[in-house]
Design a binder for these strands. Sequence first.
DNA 1: GTGGTCTAGACCACG
DNA 2: GTGGTCTAGACCACC
Lengths: 123, 123, 123, 123
Amino acid sequence: MILLDERDKRPIYEQMIDKLTDLMAREILTKDSPMPSVRSFAMELSINPNTVQRAYNELERMGYIYTVKGKGSFVADNEKAKKESRQSLMGELDSLCERARALGVTQEAVISEVKDNYGRAEK
Amino acid sequence: MILLDERDKRPIYEQMIDKLTDLMAREILTKDSPMPSVRSFAMELSINPNTVQRAYNELERMGYIYTVKGKGSFVADNEKAKKESRQSLMGELDSLCERARALGVTQEAVISEVKDNYGRAEK
Amino acid sequence: MILLDERDKRPIYEQMIDKLTDLMAREILTKDSPMPSVRSFAMELSINPNTVQRAYNELERMGYIYTVKGKGSFVADNEKAKKESRQSLMGELDSLCERARALGVTQEAVISEVKDNYGRAEK
Amino acid sequence: MILLDERDKRPIYEQMIDKLTDLMAREILTKDSPMPSVRSFAMELSINPNTVQRAYNELERMGYIYTVKGKGSFVADNEKAKKESRQSLMGELDSLCERARALGVTQEAVISEVKDNYGRAEK
DNA sequence: GTGGTCTAGACCACG
DNA sequence: GTGGTCTAGACCACC
């Protein structure tokens, strides 16, 4: 389902949260579909079940999944995920623009790069 | 000279690096001007001299400052450093655009955000 | 694993880096094998953990090892690192040759010294 | 006479010794010719006279210069300088060869680089 | 005075 | 258990 990067400096549970919310935002994980069980997920990724549990706890707290006792965890409405993903993306874009300005990069240069990127994607 | 943000979770030395490189990019710290001494800077920020030292070490390694033993540290000519920063910035922008596309954010939305940001900066 | 030379005037962490990269280049330390933990290594060498940590930090920055938080540090694939080392070595050889020429040392004398050295190594 | 590199990590007096013995080995400073006075040399390099003095002291101790009270310092027999320079060069060459071997560089590759260098110099 | 290194001991997050 | 960060305090060489 997801792949962990061992060399990533961030804690594993944070990596999991990022990758899972991303899957939700991209609608690969759809509303009300079941999440893997804590145990099987831990096995699959060869990590400690505690770590999976922690990721699930955070995801539930943030409203990305909901848990039914005795049945498991399920994807909540992923509209939320999409919205928040977009917001955080825009936040990153903002801080990136600020760094760009500090380095004397013009607005035009930034926009041209964006257009380039979208252009390359179309082909 | 700079202010530390206690709530910031990143290590102090990293915060310092960010804030100082920013000052250099904006040419508030100019070529060959002296950096505060390790000890005085530590006093000013109420932190340990070792922490300042570490930040300075990294800055020197990255080419932002140079050190003359027994005299102090000085701002280097950071045209090269700035150039590299710009390149890596554009790389980040690219990967950000790709994430945006994956989330269904249009090119127009991204560009509008960039324009907004630059607009806000002019005031 | 390694032995420190007390008479060596260079800082301990630098000595460690030299000896460890040497072990890697000679493939005594192989890809993905675990490095000693910071604390155990410090005990073994009777030095402070901070000093080991510093050496490890530099090694990671240079791409010789990678670190998994909570698990330890591991030997990276250092083909790239070796390649870069070879290049910088050849650069040093060049500047050394230039100094030799300036001192009137003939090409033959230099080559004979090189052959001597490699000859001694075979025994 | 000589140029100091402010960014050089080594102490100034050591840099001076290196550069001056080099000039002697290359016979630019000839036997019995006068060295600059401590004061004038210090002025010329914009450094502290103590530092020049220290360099001169070391040079005298090593036998590269001799001092006549009330008259100044003079270059000693530079045969010595040449000989020692060559020796230290050969020492460096040896340690370089050892590093090369550790990296798996063949004797042939080293020799070819040396020949290249001498070849380039002839043109 | 300056930076550079090192020790001792502490606290934290992660697994 | 692991590494990462920080403090406090010390000693050194250089200028």
